[in-house]
Design a protein around this nucleic acid. Structure first.
Length: 685
RNA sequence: GGCGGCGUAGCUCAGUUGGUCAGAGCAUCGGAAUCAUAAUCCGAGUGUCCGGGGUUCGAGUCCCUGCGCCGCUACCA
């Protein structure tokens, strides 16, 4: 670690949704702690992040909302940037990949690799959706499996028989986006032949035994399977355009082709750095960070990003030749929310924005830091959050600072008392501060943020013990000089703690700084000052405020209850206002009686049953999820109630024209039936 | 069902390359103290390290298998 500069990045959050707690615990909080620590150590530090704004999901979302993609990414770019700020993220620059600088940078990068002949071109016939005007990824093609005849197989795999397929194998293929019949269309794409890079990558990785075992493990499994060629262009209307000159040289029409989002996203780190440098008025400065071998490049990511940051992007950087490679990639695992059926698509998560409306950022930072998913998935629970906030931040840390400052105010007129001769315990306290500086520092340098957080709180614990053992409330009467020394040291300790906590609890650090009436900001303090005793006798302490107000039981109970509702019923049920249906709306729904003519279980499913039913004159087929509770035999002849005008759907490839009504109560499922004999096809009202 | 992850004290978790590794904090119980947000400090107990096999002189730590939990996905109440 003799290198000079630190270039720190956090994974670019994808701009098609808001941030949740899992994001923070994974790639953002650890990076921010690290960056803040580096700055306090007076290292040359640059911390970069931004929004990732290209790719298929954003396009699909835009299409479904009927707005241009730019509108989607604008929405989340600004929303997320704001959430980050409230959380105390200290990015030096937060960019976005829709910026012109980024497009330019990505194209230049691509051009360089092309000029060096590092790409392989492949032309394939691919399925194209004429309605959506786009080529379809394998997963977006559905059709009949040629092996088992299952009608709703994916383009890459049949869920029914497990056969591995290619989209061209499917009989009657259709687009999962528009349902249109795809046509085969020839398309040429640029591939990064990763296999060629494998020896170099392996050699590079083997030089980093200090990387986290889970990261190395995942990389090894990629190596042992052998790296494959990766397409780095796509046929899509949204993204960084394929450079025309490159396409022309290859005799390909660049129209409609873009760089694959995973090619351009990591380059976003570089373009954001460029924008930072330009804004600073030193447009060439970015090169110092990206191209000077004296740089430590550290990527903070979640575990889902390992392959891109440890293999693909490094291969790109190697291929380009002018760039430094990452020094470490401390990937975190996932954060689960206890009791919450997490689902971003249904909008079920603990969102950062909501959370910070109600609770202090530092409390969240602390509780995420102390149970960060460093080596395995971790759980976040409301009870735990409350316990950390109340028992540790408020009772241990907050109370130490408060009892010290109040004591100085009440008995020394708010002026720092004289530091006299030190006894053993005094010396022990000072030693602990110095040790804390070393232990917390070492842990952060080794990316062990839980350990760092624990070590920090241990220092605060010891400070309380010191206060107790010195008994200033009694020395005040029988040994005033000692009492003065004790309180002098306690105040100096608060000062040291403010620096020690700054990477983890920046807002609290600033509050203590202010109460200590210090110039400048705690962010600018020097890590090495921890354990020194810089405050002079007579130094005044002002405007004492409580650092952490306790969170009452009932508040947490309400959160848990709210979360339970959210998990059970989705967002609708969590609404407090009952939603009334107008009579007209009700009349739109056609409920009818129907008689079951025949029934059979849908093969390969647990719950589904296919029913032929008679609805008056008409005969139709529906699919119902009742097979675990009723046998096909007992269904035959029953009169049931159906929603007759529900939009027809294909379930596991089987047409369903209506929905059977049943009551679901946990393990019990009961059919809704008229309690007298009635003919089928009669309206229910 | 498929893919991925996880299973160590009541709870949240540490346990680096297999050899004092059976730990920490919280919660609980007992005591001390009263400067402080009734906040602090001291002392104490608890564990078939999910079960079963295997490799080894020796396994939370490696391999296999079973069970359980979670996430994504798939199957419309």
């Amino acid at each position: 670690m003799s290198k000079k500069r630190y270039l720190i990045t956090s994974a670019l959050p994808y701009a098609n949704g808001p941030l949740h707690l899992g994001h923070l615990a994974g790639a953002y909080l650890p990076a921010d702690i690290y960056a803040r620590y580096c700055r306090l150590k007076k290292r040359d530090t640059l911390y970069i992040c931004g929004s990732d704004e290209h790719g298929v999901p954003i396009m699909i979302r835009a299409r479904s909302e009927g707005v241009p993609p730019q509108e989607i990414v604008d929405r989340y770019h600004f929303m997320n940037e704001k959430s980050f700020r409230k959380f105390g993220m200290s990015f030096d620059y937060y960019g976005r990949t829709s910026s012109p600088v980024h497009h330019q940078t990505s194209q230049d990068f691509f051009r360089t690799l092309a000029r060096k002949n590092l790409f392989v071109l492949k032309t394939d016939k691919q399925l194209y959706d004429p309605e959506a005007k786009m080529f379809l990824a394998d997963r977006f093609v559905r059709g009949t499996c040629p092996v088992c005849g299952y009608e709703d197989a994916y383009g890459d795999q049949c869920e029914q028989c497990g056969s591995s397929l290619s989209p061209a194998d499917l009989i009657n293929p259709r687009s999962a986006i528009t349902d249109a019949e795809p046509v085969l269309k020839e398309s040429t794409h640029w591939y990064l032949p990763l296999a060629k890079f494998q020896p170099k990558l392996e050699k590079w990785i083997s030089g980093h035994p200090e990387w986290r075992p889970n990261v190395r493990g995942q990389i090894q499994s990629w190596f042992s399977n052998g790296l494959k060629d990766r397409a780095v262009t796509r046929d899509l209307p949204w993204g960084v355009a394929l450079p025309e000159d490159v396409a022309q040289a290859a005799g390909v029409d660049a129209n409609g082709k873009v760089l694959y989002v995973w090619f351009d996203a990591p380059i976003g780190y570089i373009s954001a750095t460029k924008e930072w440098a330009a804004k600073k008025g030193e447009p060439e400065l970015w090169k110092e960070y990206w191209q000077n071998p004296d740089t430590n490049l550290i990527h903070f990511i979640g575990k889902d990003n390992i392959v891109f940051h440890c293999l693909i992007f490094p291969a790109m950087l190697m291929g380009h030749g002018d760039y430094v490679l990452p020094e470490n990639v401390p990937a975190n695992e996932f954060l689960n929310i206890k009791g919450l059926k997490f689902s971003t698509s249904r909008g079920i998560a603990l969102w950062v924005e909501d959370f910070l409306e109600k609770y202090p950022a530092d409390s969240l930072r602390y509780s995420l830091a102390i149970s960060m998913p460093e080596t395995r998935d971790a759980d976040f629970s409301w009870e735990d959050f409350q316990a950390k906030h109340n028992n540790e931040l408020a009772d241990i840390l907050g109370n130490f600072v408060n009892r010290t400052f109040i004591f100085v105010r009440n008995y020394f007129g708010g002026k720092l008392p004289h530091l006299g001769e030190l006894d053993d315990l005094d010396q022990q306290l000072i030693d602990r501060l110095v040790q804390g500086k070393e232990k917390v520092g070492r842990a952060i340098d080794e990316f062990q943020f839980k350990e760092a957080t624990r070590q920090f709180m241990d220092v605060a614990r010891f400070a309380n013990k010191y206060f107790n053992d010195q008994e200033p409330w009694s020395t005040r009467k029988n040994n005033p000089e000692k009492c003065a020394t004790t309180l002098n040291l306690c105040t100096q300790t608060a000062y040291s703690l403010a620096i020690l906590m700054n990477p983890i609890l920046p807002f609290t650090s600033a509050k203590i700084w202010k109460m200590l009436h210090l110039p400048d900001e705690s962010d600018r303090a020097n890590w090495e000052d921890i354990g020194t005793l810089p405050l002079e006798e007579g130094h005044s302490i002002e405007d004492i405020e409580i650092l952490f107000q306790k969170i009452p039981e009932k508040v947490i109970k309400a959160e848990i209850e709210n979360m339970r509702k959210l998990s059970e019923g989705g967002p609708e049920k969590a609404e407090t206002k009952p939603a009334f249906l107008s009579f007209d709306e009700f009349r739109k729904m056609q409920l009818r009686t129907a008689r079951v003519l025949s029934a059979e279980k849908v093969k390969g499913t647990d719950k589904l049953m296919k029913l032929r039913i008679e609805v008056g004159e008409e005969e139709r087929q529906i699919v119902a999820g009742i097979a675990q509770h009723y046998s096909p035999k007992e269904m035959v002849g029953k009169t049931i109630i159906i929603v007759a005008n529900l939009q027809p759907a294909k379930i596991r490839g089987i047409e369903s024209n209506g929905m059977l009504l049943a009551v679901n109560d946990g393990d019990t499922l009961a059919l809704v039936q008229p309690d007298r004999d009635v003919p089928s096809g009669k309206p229910v009202s």
